[in-house]
Amino acid sequence: MKGGRRQVLDRLPRAGHKDALQRHQLLRVRRRSVAWVPPALLLVCIAAADYNTTGEFRIISWIVLVPGIAAAICGVWGTAVFAVLALVTYVLADAAWSHQYQTGLPDFILVAVGGVLATLACAVRVRGERRMLHMRDIAETTRRTVLRPLPPGWGGLDHAAVYLAADSMARVGGDFYDIQPGPHGTRVLLGDVQGKGLGAVEAAAALLGTFREAGYHEAELATVADRLEVRILRHRGHTAALGRDDGDRFATAALLAFPEDDGGAVDVVLFGHDPPLVVGLHGVRQLPPGDGLPLGLVELAGAGLPPVHRVPLAPGEILLLTTDGVTEARDGDGAFYPLAEDVARAVAADPRTAEPRRLVAFVRDRTLRHCGGRLADDTTVFAVRRRVEGEAGNGRLQS
């Protein structure tokens, strides 16, 4: 994984025929494919070796390896060309020897059949690559739909986020986050749906859709929280009616609001989620843990929805929210990643770390280093603060 680069979210790649070939050529120098070099060198070496060996030890039949190598790294037409070249080279090289040393028709058939099979195998490989690219495009579209791109300064907030799927091929999972500005202030939601797979993505999409509407229209944060709880229950009822076995999903979540009438505070509602860290130039502190249950399980608590807590914030302080892919990351000895302590040391050593984009990149890199790159769960790191004029660098980092 390479960090520090913005993800290009405004382009939707298409897995066309030429695209599949260009994106999956394995060998490139200065953006030019050199995939033809290994089979070409092998062809020349086998022909030269056969010319310099004795008649009792002919190796020209090894030329059947040339289209086989080409099938692994070249396109279909490139493989077909090498199959023909191998056959022609075999005929010329074999004819150069006297009759008693010629390998003759059997090896000719071997090289010809090998070339045909290599070309067919290459066609199957390229077709599989094209299908894989198409599936990746679908996953990327789903990811863009669930985790929509957030413009810089959206809702008057500096923000940065990184999302890492535990399944690197899936590219999308049950973690979700969003910022929704509205007439009653800017609201922020980050959460983690229990479980994995498309069922978790569906639940996350349902909650985000409700948040985007309720977060804009509802004046009270408690009402937004109630709407989220109702939505997860409705979603569970729908999946249960379909006969699916994932009708008991729940989601941990942190719901925040930056009120317009108080520029030095944030309202927080925690649904079984780890409390955010407040990161600033003067250190790191953790907000009090909430006593609420996850979304979908609130009815199990006699007190109902968790309360809304207003927390004071100093100018420039960042709220750092993470999912359990960070807090439950373990090293080789089974020790959890010490997020708060690590961030505090980083800010003390370099105050520039207390900036959303740098902070998110730092937590991402340190989490991956702590667990050796083996993520046990989907991982989201999200940093947000009231916008500081004159600073830039918001957005999603590439995973």
Rank of each mutant, 00 (worst) to 15 (best):
A170Y: 12
T223H: 12
P151G: 12
E341I: 03
T119H: 06
T119F: 01
R143S: 05
V188E: 09
T186F: 01
V326A: 07
G292P: 06
P149M: 10
R330C: 04
L359I: 12
R358S: 02
A160V: 11
Q102T: 08
H235R: 01
R148Q: 02
D248L: 14
D246L: 08
V34C: 01
T367R: 05
A20C: 15
Q22G: 10
V381G: 10
L190R: 07
V269Q: 12
L12R: 13
D158K: 03
G3D: 14
A225V: 14
L319Y: 00
A123H: 03
E328D: 06
P351C: 15
L397T: 13
R6K: 14
A251C: 07
G302L: 15
R249T: 02
P67E: 03
R28D: 06
P288L: 10
T367P: 12
E202A: 15
P312L: 08
G153R: 02
G290V: 06
H217A: 11
D262N: 13
R236Q: 05
E56K: 07
L133S: 10
A225M: 07
R58P: 04
S168R: 14
V64H: 05
R6A: 10
E341N: 03
Y337H: 05
P289E: 09
D378L: 02
D245S: 15
M1Y: 15
L339H: 13
D175Y: 07
R136H: 05
V91L: 15
I63K: 02
S98G: 04
G195V: 02
L189G: 03
R6F: 11
P259N: 14
V279D: 02
A80Y: 08
A72W: 15
A170M: 10
G237S: 07
E317A: 11
A118I: 04
D365Q: 06
R357T: 09
P183N: 10
V113I: 12
R244P: 00
P152T: 15
A48D: 03
